[in-house]
Design a protein around this nucleic acid. Structure first.
Length: 480
RNA sequence: GGCGCUAUCGUCUAGGGGUUAGGACGGAAGAUUCUCAAUCUUCAAACACGGGUUCGAUUCCCGUUAGCGCUACCA
């Protein structure tokens, strides 16, 4: 039997990244699915850092991954555990496997192995390890090791038969054992490889479900063999389809931002990112809307909704989710996120009273595409230190006569006692009629003069938000 | 190359032996005229191919093709 009954009431899952790079989109999605699964069932999410690749793992990347997890809002319940701090356990497991006859010492050097692989490739043979050292008697192997000869430990894969498992997403997957080679468990320097450390840890940490990328499907039979050799019950495997770039090849640097932190830098709201990511490879029950906040996601998530085919990362849709969240968020929720953008962009808001701030944010948010807009195109609402978009000025503010009109209009506004939307509009329209010019020209010109942008909310709402003093000053400034 | 997995609009997908094959993003057109990056309306857009099974396949089976994954003393 390849599966065992699992307790869905208290599932234990893990996210196990390797700190050889930042937290990328694919890893983030895997982390999210594990998080959703754990939260849905009230289970436990363990964070485990798989740093057994001593060459490529770095502390900076560990920090980068934790930072990514925090930005994504994916909290874990146990860990982070580091495999490099659990070396003794893997060595003990390897020793146990040698003792039970499931593994053996291999004295072939890396160079020798590489040479044989080349030769096999040249002859068109599969580059599989032939099991040379499997024939060395245990006593002799012990003697050679004692003499100081470096040795790795390999798993002795059965020569015949097959190994299968029931994947929660893909169903039954079966591999002929003859396709599997005697893979290395322990390197000659005593450091475990992936297969050994992952299985040892998953057993030790009592994982009930292994939710990971589909790129691990081919690795799974080796791990199943290890579970069996170690006498441990199998967890439920759930492989999730991969995320591809727009050209349908695996998502990589060539496709632009693959680090999740790049999305923070681009002004993406974490919850929007989670929503978008959740729908890459998973579909909620039929009839459910696509905009799903965390609570809904947690409530609806399940392994049965995971699809089998790879998904393309669609940036345009991410942006759409982002605008949906920015619009839906109340100003007070947007406020701290906006402050971060201001800090990054060096914007120092001139007014900080919440009533004004929140109403201005509410005025702006329907037109925001990302959080950065509040520090860039909306900048003029919060500070006098802003640039005017040359294209907008060219389009709406080019005419010198119009600019003079704006100065004159400023005078009318200066005399206004009630600075409301209705009043400011009336003043402008009366002025336009009096001067026999189109109100639209005045409105568009004023918009650029007031906001530095060609696109902004309704002009009179803008004026009220800015207040009389700024409106007058900026209109006057437009004159020259 | 070998092994494994996958295949519905451009993208994410629903569906399922008989449907006008549904939705969302994106796209196009129009409306609005106070801009559009807002809003509203409308439209275009898909079952990879070939064999079966069947009264009937997009759906089930086989094959082909394509894509992806694995094939390390990486994870």
């Amino acid at each position: 039997m390849t599966t065992t009954s699992q307790n869905l009431l208290q599932p234990r899952v893990r996210f196990a990244p390797s700190p050889t790079g930042y937290l990328h989109v694919g890893g983030a999605r895997t982390a999210l699915f594990n998080w959703l699964f754990a939260r849905h069932f009230g289970g436990t999410l363990v964070l485990r850092i798989e740093d057994t690749d001593l060459e490529r793992s770095t502390p900076e990347m560990v920090e980068g991954i934790l930072q990514g997890m925090r930005w994504l809002g994916l909290n874990w319940d146990e860990g982070p555990f580091f495999q490099t701090q659990r070396m003794e356990m893997y060595r003990a497991a390897a020793a146990q496997l040698v003792l039970s006859g499931h593994a053996y010492s291999c004295f072939c050097s890396k160079e020798e192995l590489e040479r044989r692989r080349q030769a096999a490739a040249a002859e068109g043979r599969p580059p599989k390890y032939e099991g040379t050292c499997r024939r060395i008697a245990r006593e002799e192997a012990e003697r050679r090791k004692a003499a100081g000869e470096p040795a790795a430990v390999r798993f002795a894969v059965p020569d015949s038969g097959s190994t299968s498992f029931d994947d929660a997403v893909f169903g039954k997957v079966e591999f002929a054992n003859s396709e599997l080679e005697d893979f290395v468990l322990l390197r000659s320097d005593g450091v475990p490889t992936y297969h050994l450390s992952v299985v040892t840890d998953d057993i030790d940490m009592r994982m009930t479900h292994i939710v990971r990328g589909a790129d691990h499907i081919s690795n799974t039979p080796k791990q199943v063999l290890l579970y069996q050799a170690l006498g441990a019950p199998l967890p439920v495997f759930a492989h999730v389809p991969l995320i591809l770039g727009p050209d349908k090849t695996r998502l990589s640097k060539r496709h632009g931002a693959t680090s999740v932190m790049a999305y923070r830098d681009e002004g993406i709201v974490p919850e929007a990112f989670r929503n978008f990511l959740s729908l890459l490879g998973w579909t909620p029950p039929a009839g459910t809307p696509e905009v799903l906040g965390d609570a809904e996601l947690v409530r609806l998530f399940g392994l049965d909704g995971i699809s089998k085919s790879n998904a393309v990362f669609d940036r345009a849709k991410l942006d759409w989710f982002n605008t949906e969240y920015i619009r839906a968020y109340p100003a007070e929720k947007l406020w701290p996120l906006i402050q971060e953008e201001w800090t990054k962009a060096g914007v120092v808001p001139e007014r900080t009273d919440e009533v004004w701030l929140f109403s201005t944010i509410d005025l702006l948010k329907p037109r925001a595409r990302n959080l950065k807009d509040f520090a860039t195109s909306f900048r003029a609402f919060f500070t006098d230190h802003y640039e005017t978009d040359p294209a907008a000025a060219e389009k709406f503010l080019k005419d010198p006569a119009l600019r003079q009109m704006l100065v004159e209009l400023a005078g009318r506004y200066a005399a206004l006692s009630e600075f409301s939307e209705a009043e400011t509009e009336k003043v402008l329209r009366d002025f336009a009629a009096e001067k026999n010019m189109k109100a639209g020209a005045l409105i568009n010109g004023s918009r650029v003069a007031l906001t530095g942008q060609g696109v902004a909310p309704s002009l009179f709402a803008v004026m009220v938000s800015l207040g009389k003093e700024k409106t007058v000053a900026r209109l006057q400034k437009a004159g020259g």
